[in-house]
Each structure stands twice: as structure tokens, then as C-alpha cells.
Amino acid sequence: MLYINCPHCGMRSQNEFSYGGDASVKRPELNKEVSDQEWDNFVYNRKSLRGKHLELWQHISGCRQWIKVERDTATHEIFRTFKADEEVA
């Protein structure tokens, strides 16, 4: 079971969290014209590669905050975690 460092609560087991998918997906701004391709990229298309993956988790049975987790999809190793509004360098 993954052990995730919630930036708000500390180390917590995975069963307190729910997964939220690729964190690099950016929603197009409201009221902005977007092409079909841009919209499909947002709604459907995912890189989902092997290796480092920045992804969203919500600490649903804890502080309910959405966080970003940098994790290796091949080994499940977690490198870093970030608050929702933290920039990922």
C-alpha cells in the first residue's frame, strides 16, 4: 500500500486518499475559444508514460485537500508531494 506524504497532514496510507489522474492536464480557461484538438487533449488524451508521473490525489479521509504527487509508475516510488497551489519545479 502506498505511503503518501500529504503536505498538510504528513505520512498517510493510500487508503485515506482517492486518485485523481494526471496532474499535468490543464483545463482550458472558461469562455475561451479552444480547438477540438485542444479540448480532446484536455478531456481524453493522456501521455500516461512509464517513469515519473505527476498526478493528483485527494486526501479524502483526511483534510480533503487535493495534492500533487510525483511518483514513478514503474516502481511506485514517490519522490515528492505538493500542495494544490504549489508550483512544481
Partner: peptide, 13 residues
């Protein structure tokens, strides 16, 4: 298991 993965190993929960 519920998260993107290429590991052919899962967890017990």
C-alpha cells in the same frame, strides 16, 4: 489498483 502503473505488482489492500 487505481493509479497509473507499469509495475506488474500490486498491493494487498
Amino acid at each position: 489498483d487505481g493509479y497509473n502503473s507499469y509495475a506488474q505488482r500490486g498491493n494487498l489492500p
